[in-house]
Amino acid sequence: MAKYLLLKHYRGGKAPVNDVPMDRWSPEEVDAHVRFMDDLADRLRESGEFVDAQALSPGGTWVRYDGEGKPPVVDGPFAETKDLVAGWMAIDVDSEERALEVAAELSSAPAAGGRPLGEWLELRPFLDDRPNAGE
């Protein structure tokens, strides 16, 4: 089994196929979208592949250490940052093919007009191998 992160972006990726901003959808379309996401997570629990799903606020702060005894330096958010992560789903699956399949399904969530969103998702493998026998 291998774990993968399916990253959703507010911006930084390519535009989705069905490129209508969510605030221009009908309330029913929004509900259908959310329901699809919940159902997908349930199906992945059922199949024993679900690990985690979280959404992130678009607003964030940049922080860094600024020396002993000094408060941390905070900055941002930076409007010019090209890449902005919106959230993720983590899965534990048998193969990369299966990870691609789940990602495609997630991307197919219904959007404006009930048509699939066709959102671009970034698929990233975890660095979580625990090699035991090999040196």
Partner: peptide, 8 residues
């Protein structure tokens, strides 16, 4: 296996 108990 570092997955949630419900998944396992």
């Amino acid at each position: 296996h570092l997955v949630p108990e419900a998944t396992m």
